[in-house]
Design a protein around this nucleic acid. Structure first.
Length: 470
DNA sequence: TGAAATGTTGGGGCG
DNA sequence: ACGCCCCAACATTTC
């Protein structure tokens, strides 16, 4: 009878390198590696469609690295773990921590139940550079403003853990009772929507590391400036890999830090800082996904308009940069960050629709959908967050297009019906003379939508709405 | 990690 | 040569 079996419970850490829980488990004896699809406890934040697609392939890649020994389950982890322990004489269950409120609650309970049965339950930090409870102001309260959080709270604290090597020897043990395969998790959507995502992504731990290396080698040098131009691939596009833990923030942090310290490097690292900040906010303010951090926004006069919401979701607002962004999201499961700000500002300010609508849509469509980043991001753009963009910062999608997509390369890629439009009118086709529209083969309201709102008027309306709050 | 409105400055055309 | 006007370019403030 096996006595030294330790379960490593894979969650948001689908990798072998720099995996503290796995490394520790490997030193105890045989490992039973498992993944549990838990839709029961997630409530309204169970995985969205795009995330499920990614997870499917990420689990396949992980299983391959584990020589086919990954056991997968569906259901309530507490019951599954207890059953497994009874069947297999399990000595301990190890995992890397997650920070969503529902997972924290669930995991705390599981820890208790396991310990009551004399099974070791150990959790590790595998997903953050600094633990949220370690980064606090002098008075013991959490930071609410990014810059002091990052500068004082993080950078002048103890440096993050340096990455661990892959465990040299994994004695992998099969859970005999389990018959489920990854395909049985039914993570792929029933409709064929996922096909269009495929050409844009290579999923899994090895792809993540390769992508990081390529980013550092080719694009880090121009990051500070290049990151503003969605047509360039100057960003790392590591976010889905980071979200699923195919690569750890520590691996990214230290690989980047090997390079010459420049503004580009600092800027990239500070983006990692924003990721930490979001997780810290979610940990200390677990209501972040639902409630405005600034309560005065609770009586903001949001509008209801399903027609406008639908236009926004489908990329049919008649505002080319907004439509390009929303279509990029739908077609690739990703959106460049500058464009995320533009479409977010448009939804919340020009359309006056509640940020929850945006948060929900992103949750379902983004491959990197992450509760902390997504809710913090939406509160930031809506102006109701802790350290948010002031409400009166309203992006003009026309100006943003001219500044950051001057040749229209990005916009035309996703809104091909405007391919022949001259740059001068690409972002405001409603102002183009008839002749120019004709030459470009564009008929507004027919093959490209007429604008659903007037930018000038809706801006003034948003400022009035903002003033009306007490 | 805004944009628009308003203010200031300085060069050039012109009487 | 000079003052005046216009306006682009830039700076500041306001939302």
């Amino acid at each position: 009878m096996n006595k030294n079996i330790v379960i490593h419970w894979f969650r948001q850490d689908l990798r072998l390198y720099d995996n503290p829980s796995l490394t520790e488990a490997a030193q105890q004896g045989a490992i039973l590696p498992i993944y549990i699809l838990d839709d029961d406890n997630a409530g309204e934040h169970k995985l969205g469609g795009a995330s499920r697609w990614w997870l499917h392939y990420s689990l396949l890649a992980l299983n391959k690295s584990l020589k086919g020994k990954l056991s997968v389950y569906i259901g309530d982890p507490e019951k599954i773990l207890i059953d497994l322990a009874e069947e297999n004489n399990i000595e301990g269950v190890y995992w890397n921590r997650c920070y969503e409120p529902w997972r924290i609650g669930r995991d705390k309970k599981i820890k208790k139940v396991l310990e009551a049965q004399n099974i070791k339950a150990k959790s590790f930090n595998g997903s953050l550079l600094w633990e949220p409870w370690d980064v606090l102001k002098k008075d013991g309260t959490p930071y609410k403003v990014f810059t002091p959080y990052y500068r004082k709270g993080c950078l002048s604290a103890i440096a993050p853990r340096t990455p661990l090597a892959e465990p040299k020897y994994l004695n992998l043990y099969d859970g005999h009772s389990n018959k489920l395969t990854i395909v049985d998790l039914k993570l792929l959507p029933a409709i064929n929507w996922n096909k269009q995502l495929e050409p844009h992504w290579d999923i899994g731990e090895m792809s993540a590391q390769y992508k990081l290396e390529k980013f550092i080698y080719n694009r880090l040098e121009n990051y500070k400036r290049g990151r503003d131009f969605p047509a360039l691939s100057s960003v790392s596009r590591l976010s889905p890999h980071l979200h699923f833990g195919e690569i750890s923030p520590n691996q990214v942090w230290y690989a980047v830090k090997l390079n010459k310290e420049t503004d580009d490097l600092d800027h990239f690292l500070s983006e990692m800082g924003w990721r930490e900040f979001s997780h810290s906010l979610l940990y200390h303010f677990p209501e972040l996904p639902r409630n405005n951090l600034q309560t005065k926004f609770d009586n903001f006069p949001w509008l209801q308009n399903t027609k406008h919401l639908r236009c926004w979701q489908r990329g049919e607002t008649g505002h080319p940069l907004v439509d390009a962004g929303m279509r990029e999201l739908w077609q690739t499961g990703y959106m460049h960050n500058r464009v995320r700000m533009v479409v977010g500002s448009f939804l919340v300010k020009n359309l006056l629709l509640h940020w929850h609508h945006g948060e929900k849509w992103f949750w379902d469509c983004l491959l990197d959908a992450n509760l902390a980043n997504n809710s913090a991001g939406w509160q930031w753009i809506a102006g109701c967050g802790a350290d948010a963009a002031p409400y009166f910062r309203i992006f003009n999608p026309c100006t943003q297009g001219q500044k950051f997509d001057p040749d229209g390369e990005y916009t035309k890629r996703f809104v091909p019906e405007l391919k022949e439009m001259p740059s001068k009118y690409l972002f405001n086709p409603w102002e183009a003379p008839d002749k120019i529209l004709q030459n470009a083969g564009v008929t507004l309201g027919e093959n490209y939508p007429a604008p659903i709102v007037n930018l000038k008027l809706s801006r003034v309306r948003a400022l009035d709405a903002f003033k009306s709050m007490k």
